[in-house]
Design a protein around this nucleic acid. Structure first.
Lengths: 350, 350
DNA sequence: ATGAAAGCGCTAACAG
DNA sequence: CTGTTAGCGCTTTCAT
């Protein structure tokens, strides 16, 4: 049960502890024959390097802190999955911190992660403004990349979906399928997704429907709000309900059907994010898919850049293009709706 | 930017590095005045102990590996949340490993976590049988607690919900509300939840409906399977559809309504787990709530016991009682269904 | 109650 | 290419 250490391998292979380290860490060139012997000894002893000792000496733990507002928010698990896999592929490990949507907890968690000497932080900030100080302070200590949400201008490197482009895809699609009375169900508050999607809707809808910018209801990113908002908007008989995320859209779709509306014949419904449980919707939900895998990959790349030494350059803000996933909930009213299967058009898998 | 170390604090407070360590770690009694001076110096210098160095010396990283099959499975995020908070409350950190439902990845992730010297592992095994070797080997190296799923008899300490009790609650409730033609939509395979819930259904249904044990369809834990299974079972006109989890129930509910069935008037539907998105169901879904907070708390307690030194005792297998959450989808056919709000009866919040 | 000193297991200079 | 020698920052004997 006593752990096998470098010293044991050195003794067994008849060379010095430093040489063994070099072979196993691949730090410096080593003679072929020596290397073979060392590897054989390590193998037969079942040697596993102690990452803690390595970390103390090399000042690098190979550990990244992933800080997020609430893992129970249905959009995050898929992002966490991609991040976890992207980082593990580089031999790093992920320390997870859930902040319960509370900036104070967020600050505490980030401090704890720094005490544990994480090499870098990947942060989905709780709040656009309340998280800013914490994030900026942390960014002076280790490389930090903001993921999915912003935190005020120029706080750190960031990777997010291009919300404006996504909303434009939705509006173009609705225009192409003849919708002309549009409304928007969004979220109040300062979260960047809420603000950007709302702004993009307002900017793009006018060309299509001059009054569209006035048919806006803002609540929160929930199914319940989607249901409630429909009751406020349906009397004006829109022919398209654009929602700021899938949860709102799912609630809206359900409530519209309860009210006897024909979706998509009478009114189209669209979401945003393409979370997994959109499989529940019937008709299947047209939505904007976030390129989750690419978001994670870009975030990892930014971290690598900074970890590789480029600590000073200007902050990069990467925006990734989303993809419109056309399904039955927005089928052209001319063409009869097909309610089974997902009729995907603009698709993009990772 | 140079990190403040113990040595700096020692110099600033005019005493030895060892004394400072004692004060800050609270390891041994120290003179009151000295302690005050040390604390003041540490405070003013902004000293933060380097957890990696501490870990190397004390052979304890304060880090727990949390290994799970797939974070995108909608039941896991809430469990992860509770575990994360329970462990952080004890000053520990969580290294997250997602296994993509693949036992080979699971083995690799666990090995990586052990290399990182996690103090203990919390494992939700991918597979009842394929994960067994990995789990048992890991358990010889560090304390290991199985969470939510088993892994064959006596592999390690374990915490899970009492699936049999949950299913019994469902059947009792259906009996009390006059249902007499019961069917079960479950999952094939060897996962403990699938097996135990199915077994409990068979054991309990006969008293209520002698043919109930034959009206069983096994697929997987998905919305799609719930929909498909209804097509196979509905011709026999059951008055209750018991589902092995909420996803199946959600799919079943939707398909029943598409087929024109009156839920709950004509047929009741029940789920299992009480995942968050059951809020999507209309009528609201009657289900069995897993005591997620308690599962996490008990798991943490088991780990603490083992970490506190009790390394050898027999394995504990803790089963926690679930709670029936009665909502509209199983309202008594006599009483008219109330479709709004959740009519919770046997509730239990953490 | 406090200090001096010896490492934890490993990597990084520095010689050879 | 390889071995020797210092530590990384901290905890923990062992003295005092």
């Amino acid at each position: 049960m006593a752990e096998v250490t470098l010293k044991d391998v050195a003794r067994a292979s008849g060379c010095s502890i430093a040489t063994v380290s070099r072979v196993l860490a691949g730090t410096r060139p080593v003679g072929a024959e020596t290397a073979r012997k060392v590897r054989a000894a390590a193998e037969s002893l079942g040697y596993r390097p102690n990452q803690v000792a390595r970390a103390l000496r090399s000042r690098s733990t190979g550990t990244i802190g992933l800080v997020l507002p609430q893992i129970t928010n249905p959009f995050f698990p898929s992002l966490v999955r991609e991040v976890e896999h992207a980082l593990h592929a580089e031999g790093r490990a992920v320390l997870l911190a859930d902040c319960d949507d509370d900036p104070a907890i967020e600050a505490a968690r980030i401090a704890a992660l720094l005490d544990r000497q994480v090499d870098a932080l990947l942060v989905i900030p709780v709040d656009e403004s309340h998280s800013r100080d914490t994030v900026m302070t942390a960014a002076t200590r280790v490389p930090l990349v903001l993921l999915d949400r912003g935190c005020g201008p120029g706080a750190a490197d960031s990777v997010a979906v291009d919300n404006a482009a996504g909303m434009a895809l939705v509006l173009d699609h609705l225009a192409a399928t003849g919708r002309r009375r549009i409304c928007f169900l969004g979220a109040a508050g300062t979260a960047s997704a809420a603000v950007e999607r709302h702004a993009a809707y307002k900017a793009g809808v006018t060309a299509l429907d001059p009054q569209g910018a006035d048919r806006v209801e803002l609540g929160d990113f929930s199914v319940e709000w989607g249901r409630a908002a429909v009751d406020r908007i349906w009397p004006s008989r829109p022919d398209a309900v654009v929602c700021a995320n899938d949860l709102i859209a799912l609630g809206a779709l359900q409530r519209l059907q309860q009210l006897g509306a024909d979706v998509p014949g009478e009114v189209a419904v669209t979401g945003f994010d393409d979370i997994l449980i959109t499989s529940l919707a019937d008709p299947a939900l047209t939505t904007v898919r976030q390129p989750v895998g690419e978001l994670a990959a870009e975030a990892a790349r930014l971290l690598d850049r900074r970890l590789a030494g480029e600590r000073t350059g200007p902050h990069r803000a990467i925006r990734l293009a989303p993809a419109l996933v056309i399904r039955a909930s927005s089928a052209s009213p001319a063409t009869p709706a097909r309610d089974a299967g997902s009729t995907r058009t603009t698709e993009e898998d990772q």
